[in-house]
């Protein structure tokens, strides 16, 4: 289940990023080759980028590879390190949950505002926030369970 989710997300990430690369290149080609542009092209590139970043951050959380200052916790005895990790993931899950909850009111009020160039409702882009933070919340809970119930030994060099 967890592996399926990760595979699905990584395929989405690759698609988003390939889309960004292809679209930016296409816009250059259109400018010189065809003397024109795709209206809203840049806006769409940014939407892809928002999704790639929000979902990418969740995937990175699932792998526990986010940038952090581990100097202090690395000096804790292993059994305390375990509790520190549980507290950390609980807090990370909490702030993602906060984002998820508060984004609902925001999108309900302003989601139907149309974007400037594409003319599509902005909830298309805004949805990246609850989606990304929702997945991040799931990953945090999963990490807590893993830490609680697995006998994984801690490698301080990590």
């Amino acid at each position: 289940m967890e592996r399926r989710l990760k595979q699905l997300l990584e395929v989405l990430l690759i698609l988003c990023f390939s889309g960004i690369l292809a679209l930016v290149l296409l816009l250059v080609v259109l400018r010189y080759g065809f003397n024109t542009t795709l209206i809203g092209g840049n806006e769409f590139v940014v939407i892809l980028f928002v999704y790639a970043s929000a979902l990418g951050a969740a995937v990175v959380l699932g792998k526990n590879e986010h940038i952090s200052i581990t100097w202090f916790v690395n000096r804790l005895p292993l059994e305390y390190r375990k509790y520190a990790d549980i507290i950390n993931f609980a807090l990370v899950g909490f702030i993602n949950g906060v984002m998820l909850v508060y984004s609902i009111g925001w999108i309900a009020t302003t989601g139907d505002y149309v974007s400037a160039a594409l003319g599509i409702p902005q909830y298309f882009a805004q949805m990246a926030v609850p989606l990304g933070c929702g997945v991040a919340l799931l990953y945090s809970l999963n990490q807590i369970l893993l830490t609680l119930f697995s006998d994984k030994t801690y490698d301080p060099s990590l």
């Binding site: 990023f17 960004i20 690369l21 930016v24 840049n42 590139v45 940014v46 980028f49 928002v50 790639a52 970043s53 929000a54 906060v98 984002m99 508060y102 984004s103 009111g105 925001w106 882009a125 805004q126 990246a128 926030v129 609850p130």
Partner: peptide, 23 residues
């Protein structure tokens, strides 16, 4: 002002200039 949280988070991702970063 708690509503601000998701809005600011979103605006930090919604940055055209930073697309150069992953590229």
């Amino acid at each position: 002002l708690l509503d601000i949280l998701p809005m600011r988070f979103f605006s930090g991702l919604n940055l055209y200039a930073l697309i150069a970063l992953p590229l």
